[in-house]
Design a protein around this nucleic acid. Structure first.
Length: 248
DNA sequence: GGAACATGAGTGCGCGGGCA
DNA sequence: TGCCCGCGCACTCATGTTCC
């Protein structure tokens, strides 16, 4: 019995709707489908995996969920723009894998997005609630690093073995090398040196010290007369080549 | 006044899930 | 059970801004 894609899709949707996401996996979905249709679906493994991902993604994109998400955003916006723990990075679900276990951020996103749309599925809402409860009870995969943000600034910095590209020497472009006075420098050294130059030459914009005014030597590097110092790496990266090229 | 966050870049690494 | 894969944080540097 050959299942059409539509049939598969519908069946998976049903399974996802009723399933306990905490223990569900793409494999289990496939097995369940095999049982359900009494047919071997191993040749459709990829297709099923893909469908599972798609359906989860779909459910997360549903308008109702957006409402909730936006209401959440509104809440955030109500607050003054005070310190926020990097709003951009989290919550975004880049790849909703069929895996049921999610990071807390993802679960939050999932719970706000999971309910499948249009006809306002109570099952999904219940599921979302359940997930949230499980989350609160702390039973899921949690990365201890979620709290790292604070640790970062503490004096006890983890030693990083110096293998990071930051501390590895990179090849500098001719223009940058002229400014730096060296052909090879680590990225962090480049930034450090750049700040030194900015101060030495008094290049900071007096009206807004977040900006720097490029002199003739820096102009070809940054390509602009006025550059925000925070974003200097955006320009510098074009003048820094990978360490591998250097060492080889 | 001090602490924490914001801002940008690219890579290493830890962690956890999936699968054979 | 062990390998593979993907995700997300930490790393580096500086100053300005905001909050407590």
């Amino acid at each position: 019995m050959a299942l059409t894609q539509d049939e598969l899709r519908k069946a998976i949707k049903d399974i996802l709707k009723d399933a306990d996401l905490d223990s569900l996996s793409a494999k289990k979905v496939r097995l369940q489908l095999q049982e359900q249709y009494d047919t071997d679906l191993s040749n459709k493994k990829k297709e099923i995996d893909q469908l599972v991902m798609e359906l989860i993604e779909e459910s997360q994109d549903s308008p109702e969920n957006e409402d909730e998400a936006s209401s959440e955003e509104e809440e955030l916006e109500d607050e003054p723009p005070k310190k926020k723990p990097k709003p951009t990075k989290k919550v975004t679900i880049t790849k909703p894998k069929p895996q049921p276990k999610k990071t807390p951020e993802k679960v939050v996103a999932a719970t706000t997005n999971m309910s499948d749309s249009s006809d306002g599925d109570e099952d999904d809402e219940a599921m979302a609630q359940k997930l949230q409860e499980e989350l609160n009870s702390g039973g899921r995969r949690t990365r201890s690093r979620n709290t790292k943000k604070k640790e970062r600034k503490t004096p006890v910095k983890r030693e990083k073995k110096g293998t990071s590209t930051y501390s590895r020497p990179c090849l500098l472009s001719q223009e940058l090398a002229d400014v730096m006075g060296a052909d090879k420098l680590a990225r962090n050294e480049v930034v450090k040196k750049m700040w030194q130059i900015i101060k030495e030459r008094n290049l900071q914009d007096p009206s807004n010290r977040q900006f720097m005014i490029c002199d003739e030597q820096l102009l070809p590097i940054f390509g602009k007369k006025k550059v925000k110092t925070f974003g200097m790496m955006k320009y510098l990266k074009n003048h820094i080549k990978d360490a591998k090229d250097v060492t080889s």
